[in-house]
Amino acid sequence: MSRTYWAAGAAVLLALLFAAAATVSAASGGGADAAPRTPALHSPDAGFARDMAVHHQQAVEMSFVVRDRTQDEAVRSLAYDIANTQANQRGMLLGWLDLWGLPKTVAGEPPMSWMGTGDGHAGHGAHTAAPGALMPGMATKEEITRLGTVSGREAEVLYLQLMTDHHKGGVAMAEGCARQCVTPAERALAQGMAEAQQSELTLMADMLAKRGAAPRG
């Protein structure tokens, strides 16, 4: 395995450790460093938890799809790591919403609207959602359908390109929470997410280059 792959794996492990610590902290009230109050319905803390749970769910879905479309062990291993990590993190985020007594969906709330509150960094590092995509970086239904119809190198390249876009959107959101969220454990988890996904972006660029391809846009 390449050094880049090991770096990405270490970053993913770090993110999971943050997630485990976050759950303990949230369940126990967080000790001396805990947030002074439960996050409000439209706070960055709650908005990030809701939006990133949706964002992660699509990454898990795409990762399971590509594992059935290729026999390439490097891509299958990456897909497994992404699916496992993001499914666990998604559980953490939804668990926080339960602990805070907040809904997992809010009717009429635009995706990522929480990034326009707090410190004035609205949209920092993010890009515009593609037509038909729910949030920046997310794939469209047509792209996911296509992923399920191609195979071999074509499936590998498409998955790596879609997941590269997905990670870029995820990193922008995670960095937004790291700046704006007030719950220390959630900020730590968001920072771990951003670092892990940055490492995976480097890995995926290398994997695309080995297949004679490159990230989109």
Rank of each mutant, 00 (worst) to 15 (best):
residue 194 A to Q: 12
residue 32 A to P: 04
residue 91 G to R: 15
residue 166 H to Y: 09
residue 49 A to C: 14
residue 211 R to M: 10
residue 11 A to N: 12
residue 22 A to E: 06
residue 104 K to W: 15
residue 111 P to G: 02
residue 89 Q to T: 07
residue 199 S to W: 13
residue 41 L to H: 06
residue 113 S to G: 02
residue 51 D to K: 04
residue 38 T to V: 09
residue 24 V to G: 05
residue 135 M to D: 03
residue 23 T to D: 13
residue 189 L to C: 05
residue 196 A to Q: 08
residue 23 T to V: 13
residue 205 A to F: 11
residue 204 M to I: 09
residue 70 T to A: 06
residue 62 M to E: 01
residue 140 T to P: 00
residue 94 L to Y: 13
residue 4 T to D: 11
residue 215 P to D: 00
residue 64 F to R: 12
residue 49 A to R: 09
residue 124 H to V: 13
residue 120 G to P: 03
residue 187 R to V: 00
residue 71 Q to A: 14
residue 193 M to D: 08
residue 32 A to F: 11
residue 127 H to P: 05
residue 48 F to W: 14
residue 70 T to K: 10
residue 126 A to G: 07
residue 168 K to H: 11
residue 166 H to N: 04
residue 8 A to I: 03
residue 138 M to D: 02
residue 66 V to C: 04
residue 162 L to D: 00
residue 116 G to Y: 10
residue 67 R to Q: 12
residue 217 G to Y: 07
residue 138 M to Y: 07
residue 108 G to Y: 02
residue 202 T to K: 15
residue 193 M to S: 07
residue 216 R to A: 02
residue 201 L to E: 14
residue 100 W to S: 03
residue 145 T to H: 10
residue 212 G to A: 09
residue 7 A to L: 14
residue 50 R to P: 04
residue 187 R to H: 02
residue 82 I to H: 10
residue 150 V to D: 06
residue 209 A to K: 13
residue 5 Y to N: 08
residue 190 A to L: 08
residue 74 A to W: 14
residue 157 V to D: 00
residue 8 A to F: 12
residue 67 R to T: 05
residue 13 L to N: 10
residue 143 E to T: 03
residue 2 S to R: 13
residue 170 G to A: 14
residue 194 A to M: 14
residue 126 A to W: 06
residue 116 G to P: 00
residue 113 S to K: 01
residue 195 E to C: 12
residue 164 T to K: 01
